[in-house]
Design a binder for these strands. Sequence first.
DNA 1: AATAATTGTTAGCAAAGGCTAAACTATTTG
DNA 2: CAAATAGTTTAGCCTTTGCTAACAATTATT
Lengths: 158, 158
Amino acid sequence: MSDHEQQPLPPTSRQSGDALPPVEQHAQQYETVRNAHETELIEDYVELIGDLLRHRGEARAADIASRMAVSQATVSKMIRRLNELGLVTSRPYRSLFLTEEGQRMAETSRARHDIVLHFLRALGVRDTTARIDAEGMEHHVSDETLTIMQRFTESHQP
Amino acid sequence: MSDHEQQPLPPTSRQSGDALPPVEQHAQQYETVRNAHETELIEDYVELIGDLLRHRGEARAADIASRMAVSQATVSKMIRRLNELGLVTSRPYRSLFLTEEGQRMAETSRARHDIVLHFLRALGVRDTTARIDAEGMEHHVSDETLTIMQRFTESHQP
DNA sequence: AATAATTGTTAGCAAAGGCTAAACTATTTG
DNA sequence: CAAATAGTTTAGCCTTTGCTAACAATTATT
């Protein structure tokens, strides 16, 4: 073949045609995203259960199903998984509750979610859009970026 | 039962304990995220193939495998899918190429990716972190937010 | 040219996350 | 309190995205 030498990356950035990152770094980017995807759904469930408990006092499978726009069967299966993971406790036909660990996860997720949402609003994004974007983005924002977003939000609303 | 009335949502926002959005809106948030997930991987492949073609002149399955940190078998299977979707053309043991449609998709993805990446850097996020975050975030940023990010970036680097 | 190394493909397996249909339990209502 | 309605669970199926192992083809080396 040919073209397999490592191009000597320019110091830090360029405009549109940013050079390809070195293989290991590139690989790590994708790996991070894949890992995030594995926990993402779990976190969404736990976060939603936490929200329902907080705002309604109970979290029923049916509510989760309609709020997630998914069938009840899917929710039921997922709850079994959350159970196995030690995140929720459930008795058949009763409301769900979060374990200690579940509560911690819900708390963390909600905090991230809020930071991203408030940041987007502070940036000037409309509320509805901000909510949709935040839902998708929250699992892909590093702690570093989160901190920066938080500072930004604070300094942009009196 | 009880708690099933719709709380009269406060005007628009609150601090940390933001009220639950109405069911339909909430459902739509999750649906949007699920839909994004379906196209995400496809877009990542197409974008990477575009980048490889642009920077190296060719895109081989082996390169994709190492840059994505997945097995060659996985890449091979994926290429078949991209083929069926009419996004790439491939002849065994030859470099891949993008179809017209593939090129459009690669172009769009790269543009989004760049906007998010440059925005994060302009915000003050370190390069390595920015790259990881951008990779995860790019598929979840609406056009509205993208436009805002772009404007922000422009006005924050002389 | 023969062999070694690299690259690509195929087959078969597993886990995740959806779905529908059917069965079961609980709650509400006539 | 019996019947109807609403909520929950289970079974069985499908698709996607990964993997490993075995095999095939191409390219590089000696």
